[in-house]
Design a protein around this nucleic acid. Structure first.
Lengths: 235, 235
DNA sequence: CAGGCGCAGATTGTATAAAGTTTCGCCTGT
DNA sequence: ACAGGCGAAACTTTATACAATCTGCGCCTG
């Protein structure tokens, strides 16, 4: 048959076993099912996905490069634990990049994309209605990724994927207990601005949206954090 | 200056054998000694660096994640060949990020850094004087990395390292034959603005510098490029 | 003589086994 | 009773062997 599979391996990930592992772990981190500092043993993961350690190791190295996993020499891989300084850097980078991304997304707007955005909003709303915190968190990040895909900028998309994954860990670590999750209303407003092709408004809304997320965080003083670590180790 | 840098494994492990391979190949690409499309055989590299294929493979995967190497399934690793579309994206991202980086660098300016920048300019000038094109190209990129390090933003630094490496390939592929290399004068002007802590001027100079580099490129129509590829494969 | 089929060589993908390192428990000495 | 060191177990790291896949050349056939 013609099943010669000459397809370009450029297709991100689907049938690849390494990609399945990577996406599984990524999803678990994005849904806050894996907490920062969790040990990611190679045997353990390998058994779950029915893969040998070679493949698991490849996946973990990719995740380490994305900044959501730390690999310590001779110690193993752990879910990353971003510092408050990291958190500030991540959100500053997002504030810089995302308004630009929205701008490009509006250039590439189409009925199909608007439909996709609308369906996303509905899905998110439904998840929040039934109190599914995990789905809600995941979809919150997915919205931003969706806009980046829409923009057609593969480089921005790659950068943002990294930033979103790290943001998820940051929010898990530092969010004030009582504040609600990143509101759907913001996303809906951004979509409305995109629909109207109002670049200035869409960019401004994205910016204030990010500012609001960061304002909900309690980033303890990094100096105090490092000191406590040093004291605990040195004293 | 020994205070910070206690951060994660992303720090340059010069002693690691994998890192040595990665940096060796990266340097070769940055100095235009490895051309786009060059096959990077695992055995070949392994023999050069006296390492087993396992380590070579790890290094190549990291380079693939940085976008300067393409890994095709069951085919091997090749030096990446950025398309004109890629080139435009890379330079747009640089125009967005680098003025911000300069801004932060000025916040972190110190006599030690100014000295380092000055020494860099001298080294570059000397390389150009003796007509060492390879060193000149390498140092051109290094200047931008230096400013990013100075800014203290590890995320921006990581992004920019990727962008610089890709830029090197892009310049090699698409630069008009007769134009001179990216001028030292620009860099010197930026350093002067940094020295005066003139953020507005430094950012503007960086922007025009990037614009000038891109203007020296001849990016053939991506549509024509893709069509030719599709025709060649389909017909 | 042209074109396609098939085998051989080479190269990558994967798994498994050996080697080195760290960690934790236990035992001994004070 | 507690501190310190010794030893075993578990894990990661590295290397090597095996299997799958692709490329290129030669031969056969029409």
């Amino acid at each position: 048959m013609a099943a010669k599979t000459r397809q370009k391996s450029d297709a991100p990930d689907a049938s690849d076993r390494v990609s399945r592992i990577r996406e599984g772990v990524t999803a678990a981190i994005l849904e806050h099912r894996l907490l920062p500092g969790t040990k990611l043993g190679e045997d353990e993961i390998g058994e779950i996905y029915g893969a040998s350690r070679t493949l698991v190791r490849t996946a973990l190295q990719q995740l380490a490069h994305e900044g959501i996993v730390n690999i310590e020499k001779n110690r193993g891989a752990f879910v990353a634990r971003p510092t408050p300084a990291d958190a500030r850097e991540v959100f500053e980078a997002r504030r810089l990049i995302e308004p630009t991304i929205v701008d490009h997304a509006i250039d590439a707007v189409s009925p199909a994309w608007l439909d996709r955005l609308g369906r996303h909003l509905a899905e998110k709303r439904e998840a929040e209605l039934r109190g599914d915190a995990r789905a809600s968190v995941r979809l919150s990040g997915e919205f931003h990724r969706l806009v980046a895909e829409m923009s057609g900028h593969s480089i921005y998309l790659g950068f943002l994927k990294e930033l979103i994954a790290r943001s998820s860990l940051i929010i898990l670590l530092y969010r004030r207990h009582d504040t609600p999750a990143c509101g759907t209303d913001h996303h809906a407003g951004i979509v409305a601005a995109i629909r109207k092709r109002d670049k200035a408004r869409a960019g401004a809304l994205m910016l204030s949206h990010l500012n609001e997320i960061e304002a909900e965080l309690f980033l303890k003083d990094p100096a105090a954090d490092e000191l406590r670590l040093a004291d605990g180790l040195g004293a």
